[in-house]
Design a protein around this nucleic acid. Sequence first.
DNA 1: TGTTCTTGTATTATTATTTAATACAAAGTA
DNA 2: TACTTTGTATTAAATAATAATACAAGAACA
Lengths: 277, 277
Amino acid sequence: MSIENRKQTSSPPDAPGASALYVGSLEKGFRVLAAFSDDHPALGVTEIALRTGLDKSAAQRFSNTLHQLGFLEKDAATRRYRPGRRLMELAYTYLRHSVLGAAAMPRLIEAGSVYATTVNLAERDDTNMIYTVRIPHVKAAYSATVPGRRVPVFCAASGIAVMSRLSDEEALDIIARSEMTKRLATTVTDPDKIMKAVHQARRRGFALTYAQQLPREISVAAPIIDVHGRPVGAVQIPVYSPAWKQSEAAAKLGPLAIETADGISGALVASEQEFQP
Amino acid sequence: MSIENRKQTSSPPDAPGASALYVGSLEKGFRVLAAFSDDHPALGVTEIALRTGLDKSAAQRFSNTLHQLGFLEKDAATRRYRPGRRLMELAYTYLRHSVLGAAAMPRLIEAGSVYATTVNLAERDDTNMIYTVRIPHVKAAYSATVPGRRVPVFCAASGIAVMSRLSDEEALDIIARSEMTKRLATTVTDPDKIMKAVHQARRRGFALTYAQQLPREISVAAPIIDVHGRPVGAVQIPVYSPAWKQSEAAAKLGPLAIETADGISGALVASEQEFQP
DNA sequence: TGTTCTTGTATTATTATTTAATACAAAGTA
DNA sequence: TACTTTGTATTAAATAATAATACAAGAACA
C-alpha cells in the first residue's frame, strides 16, 4: 500500500553531519544551488529533483525558497530557475575581510601589467584550488575569467606549487584523496608524474604545467606562504601556446610569479602580525 | 513555568515566505552568513545569535552545519567562525552562465585599458545595484575592488544610469522603497535632486556622481539595455579627485562608458537571439 | 592565583516543520 | 483534440528541528 514506499528510516549511513547539530535542510538547499554548477544554465523543478536526488516535493520547496530569497531567478515564461544575482553577495561576504585577498590585490594588478597577462590568486580548499581573485588582461575564454572556479590540486599549476611547499606525505595524501578524472586527454593523473612535477617545482620555486585544464594552456604558478609557514595558495599566470612557448613562460613568468607571491607572503605576515606585536 | 516561554506559535506576521512551500531553515542559514557581511570578520556563536535574532541553540546548529559544508571556517583557537573560501563557488554558479557577464567581460577589459581605469559591471537587483564583474586597474581601496558589493540604486551612478532608462514612475517607486541612509555626508537623499540627476542622465546618456559612496570619488556610468529594451545594469567607471576633475571625467569617461555599454547591449541582444532566430 | 563571568559544547523531550504522496492545472507534443 | 509531460497546490504523518538546560572551558577580574 501507500504506506510501504515511504521514506526509508535509515538515513544515508553517515553523510556530512548526521549529528543533532546538523541541519539537513540547509545542506539540501545548497545541493539545489550546486545542481546549476555543472553545465546547466536553467533547470525546472523536475530536473532539479533528478540532479539533487531530492524528490519532486523537496525540489519544489527548496527551489521556491531560494527564489523567494533571491538566490534563484525564475523565468516567468518557461518556469525554469536560474542562479540569481544575489549569489554574488556571498562572494563579497568572503572576500571583504580576506587578508589574503587584500594583500594580493595590488600586487596581482601590478604583475598583470608587466606582460599584459591575466593573473589569478588561487587558494587551496582541501583537494581543490579555488580561484578567488582574477585580474583578466587579455581576452580569454569567459569561464576562465570568472572567479570561484574550482580545479583539483593535482592537475593545476597552482596546486603543484602549493604541494611543493608541503611534505611529500601531505602531497601524496591530497593526491590519494582526489578523484583522478581527466579534464583533457593530456591531464596527468599518474601520482608518480605528479610528484615529479612537485619536486621540480620545489627546486625551481614555481610550477609550470601544459594543457592540464584547457588545450594549449601554459600555466605558471608560485606558492604563497602564511605566517605559520604553510602554503595557503598561489599566484597563477595562464598564457597560451603558440603565442607563448613553455621555455619563454618559464624564463619570464616564473620569476614574476615568484616575486609576486613572495610579496604577498610578506604582506600577509605583516598584516597578521599587526594583531600581536 | 518552563512551558510558558517556549516559542510563540504565531510566526512573524508574514516574513518572506510563510507558505507551506517555504523552508524556514534555509533562510536562517543565510541569515547566519549575512551576519558577517556588515563589518565583522569573525563571530562567535553568541554574537551570531545576537546579530541574526536566532537563539543560541539555532545559532549553534546553523553555524556548525555551515562549517561542515565548508561555507564557514572555524578558528580552532578562538572558536570563532569566519566566511569560508567555498562561498566563492556560489559566485561561480551565477557568473558561469551569465550572458550579461560573458557579453561584458571583453568589452570591460578593453575599456579599462583606454585611460587605465577600473571598470565595473553593475547589475540591478530591485533597489540595489550589485557589482558582478570588476576589472581593477589602479590601486584603489581593497573593498572597492571586490565583486559582490551592493549599493542602493538611488545613490550610485550606475543606479542613476539604470533609472534614466526607466519611466519616472518606476524610478520614483525604486526611490520610495529604498532606505534613505547616507553613506557619506555628501550622499544625496532628496528624491527631487535624485530625479534631477536621472533626467540629466537621460539627456546625456550617462550619469555622473561625486562623493556618494567614497570621499572624492567621481563615478561615471552608462546603462545597458537588454533584448526587451529594459535597463538591466550599467558600465561604471570610478576615478578620484584631484587626479580627475568632474568636467574631464564627463568629457572622457562619459563617452567611453556609453560606447562600452552600447557594445554590451548589442552583444546581449545578439546572444539572446541565438535561441529564437 | 583563585573566583566569577562569559562563551562554547552537548543532550533531550517536545512539537512544529518538513515530508511524501497525491490530485489538479497548465504547457508542450503528436 | 487527445495525450504526455511538467509545474503547482494540498494534506496527513512523522521526521527532523527546536528551546531549554546542564556542563565545560576560557577569559576577565580581584
